[in-house]
Simulated assay, not measured.
Amino acid sequence: MSEYLLEFQDVYYSYPMATTPTLQGLSLRLPKQQKTALIGQNGCGKSTMLAIADGLAQPDRGKVILDNIPLAFNRAALRRWRQRVGLVFQDPEQQLVAPTVAADISYGLCNQGLPTAEVAAKVMKTLTDFNLEALAMSPLQHLSLGQKKRVSIAGVMALHPELLLLDEPTAYLDSVQTRNLLVELEAIAQRGTTLLIATHDLDFVYQWADWILVMEQGRLITEGETLAVFDRLQFMPEFELGMPLLWQMWSPLAAKMPKVPAPRSIDEFNSYLQSILSNISLTPEV
């Protein structure tokens, strides 16, 4: 059995009237049951990659494979594919289609032709999983952006996909909403779902991701575990997104504390600082 859930093999894709392909021989593999981040500059092909991975766009050439099954673009194959792969758009307004929260979560389930009682049970479980019970009958237009994003994720997860794709999930969210999103995504990962997030938010990536894929001009330029990738990127001039703030704060201290694992959150970093300070003996001036 493969340790990878999704594979792109030499994939090319061009938009109509474009002078160069958006994806130019993209090859990558997505580890199963991992939290993976896809990063790169605007225009590098991240959103296009997600659209192809969900079967919304057909590559000009190359193969896309899900757990040894190639992506095919006939109606029956796409229906089966999208039962296993869910995509959450950057703008929830593009995804929410029903008048209320509960109705929107039920939409995909009803399209599967499930019995009414089963749909109702799955909707109730999803509302509970995403802490949306109090909003079940709320009109979608009355929700905050953070709530709308939560509903859009809940609607996809109600279908229990094996792979969840998210395009810029932290866009327009404040710090509280981003922390809430981290909690929700961690809960999804704990249930065994493989996650792939395309984002520019490197601070979020540094705290959240197990694995990182880095794209540039439609190709994969490096990949690996989070700390190893950021250590590598500092020496790659073509990568112009900067570095995570916490990584920059820790780097000057890392050489002096070689046996201490790099902190992946502000809480961990503060804990290290408190430990260091508590071991410093201060001699009062005479």
Rank of each mutant, 00 (worst) to 15 (best):
V151E: 11
A158T: 06
L109S: 01
Q33W: 02
Q177W: 03
V156A: 11
R29A: 00
Q33K: 09
D231E: 14
Q41Y: 02
M1E: 03
T20S: 15
A76P: 00
L165K: 07
E186C: 00
Q217D: 03
V11H: 13
T48L: 05
T116S: 14
V214K: 12
R232Y: 14
L71W: 13
S271E: 12
P237K: 12
M124S: 03
V229Y: 02
N42A: 12
Q274T: 05
N131W: 10
E133T: 02
P261H: 05
A117M: 10
L71S: 07
R232T: 04
V85F: 03
N180M: 11
E184H: 15
L143R: 10
L253Q: 15
S281A: 08
Q248I: 04
L109Y: 14
M215F: 07
E216F: 13
F73E: 02
K259S: 15
K35I: 03
P16H: 03
P237S: 11
S275Y: 10
T100V: 00
F73S: 04
Q274A: 05
S175V: 15
W247S: 13
V119P: 10
V205T: 10
S265E: 11
V183S: 09
S281P: 15
N279Y: 10
L66E: 02
L66K: 07
Q190N: 00
D104F: 14
Q147H: 12
D67A: 15
E3L: 02
G146D: 14
R232D: 10
H200I: 13
K32I: 09
L96Q: 01
I65L: 07
V205W: 14
P284E: 12
S144R: 13
A154Q: 02
Y4C: 07
L182A: 09
E7A: 09
L277R: 07
G108K: 12
Q147V: 04
L23G: 01
M257D: 08
V101Y: 01
R75I: 13
P99E: 02
L96S: 01
A158V: 01
K149R: 13
Y4R: 15
A189M: 15
V64A: 02
Q217F: 01
A158S: 11
Q9I: 10
S144D: 04
S251Y: 15
M124D: 06
G25D: 00
K122G: 00
A198D: 07
K125V: 04
V151L: 08
E118F: 12
G146A: 13
P284I: 06
W81Y: 03
R191M: 09
P115F: 09
Q34Y: 08
I276E: 10
L78G: 09
S14P: 04
I197T: 12
V97D: 13
D203V: 07
Q58W: 08
D210I: 06
P244G: 10
V85C: 05
S152P: 00
P92N: 08
L78T: 07
A53T: 11
A72D: 07
V214Q: 08
I105E: 02
L227S: 08
R79K: 01
L38D: 06
R219K: 01
P252G: 11
Q33R: 02
L277Y: 15
A189E: 11
M137H: 02
L227T: 09
V97M: 14
L182H: 12
V64W: 05
P92K: 10
S14T: 11
Q190E: 13
T36M: 10
L114V: 08
